[in-house]
């Protein structure tokens, strides 16, 4: 029926699609990857599609941060209450934490640089990508989606923007930790009090140790879902262009001139 391209044995693949999720090798700014690791260890790796490292570092960050009271210490230090910061911080755990924190930033910068080289090499070979993957439980395909729709869903509930583009490994993980952080920080109670003008009660009801996880989660999910909507659109276009070239540029076509 139509010519298919051999998708095996590619040295520099552009993207891999499975019923569960899509992973791509694309150009990223290493400083941006490093920043997301600084905002929330593990997020830089999730941004770059390295889920196992990303999940481990994120869970590590959540547990150690809560056990060592790092978020509390950050708030006390930034607001000038240095004695309280010293009192609340668990130094033995803090020293363990620092190692993985710095590693996360360094490693995502490095990965971004290396993957950028591979991305250039992938662009120099013909794109050989499946545009579709299906199992009895799920269907995943490249399609043209609007990045602003992803961003809007992530604004409403972080994680949904990723679910929209079928980047489910990030989507479900972010949904779960967002829900947990919202619940334990009592953010929605504080939101209610804030909207009715009870500002001091709102500040009192919030648990800052959990609340400080929320801004990074929010920003990351919006940014990451936007960027990958664009990247998946590009893979869609590259795959379709490759198919058209292989099937609709026959040498015996009669041309007007």
């Amino acid at each position: 029926m139509f010519k298919t391209i051999n998708r095996k044995n590619q040295r520099y693949p552009r993207a891999v699609i499975s019923p569960f999720t899509t992973n791509t090798i694309n150009r990223t700014n290493p400083w941006v990857a490093a920043w997301w690791s600084a905002a929330f260890p593990g997020f830089g790796h999730m941004f770059l599609g390295r889920y196992i490292t990303g999940f481990v570092l994120t869970i590590w960050e959540i547990i150690l941060n809560l056990k060592a009271n790092i978020n509390l210490a950050i708030i006390y230090s930034f607001t000038g209450q240095f004695d309280q910061a010293r009192e609340v911080l668990d130094y033995k755990l803090f020293i363990v934490y620092i190692g993985a924190f710095v590693f996360g930033i360094w490693d995502s910068y490095r990965i971004s640089v290396e993957m950028n080289k591979r991305s250039v090499l992938a662009d120099r070979t013909d794109p050989v990508v499946d545009n579709f993957s299906m199992s009895p439980f799920s269907i995943n395909c490249f399609e043209k989606r609007n990045p602003w729709v992803s961003a809007a869903w992530s604004c409403l509930v972080p994680g949904l923007g990723h679910v929209y583009i079928h980047r489910l490994a990030t989507g479900f993980f972010v949904l779960i930790i967002w829900a947990l952080a919202v619940y334990f920080s009592r953010m929605l109670v504080a939101m209610h009090l804030t909207l009715t003008g009870a500002f001091s009660e709102a500040a009192a009801v919030i648990d800052p140790a959990y609340f400080l996880f929320l801004p990074s989660l929010y920003g990351f999910s919006i940014y990451c879902s936007y960027v990958y909507t664009v990247e998946y659109n590009k893979v869609f276009k590259a795959e379709q262009a490759g198919y058209l070239k292989a099937n609709y540029q026959s040498p015996d076509s009669k041309m007007p001139c």
């Binding site: 950050i74 708030i75 607001t79 953010m187 504080a190 009090l193 609340f211 801004p215």
Partner: peptide
Amino acid sequence: GAIYGTVLKWGPVL
């Protein structure tokens, strides 16, 4: 904003 909101009047959410 979330950090300084803990000591400012409008609270960390706002």
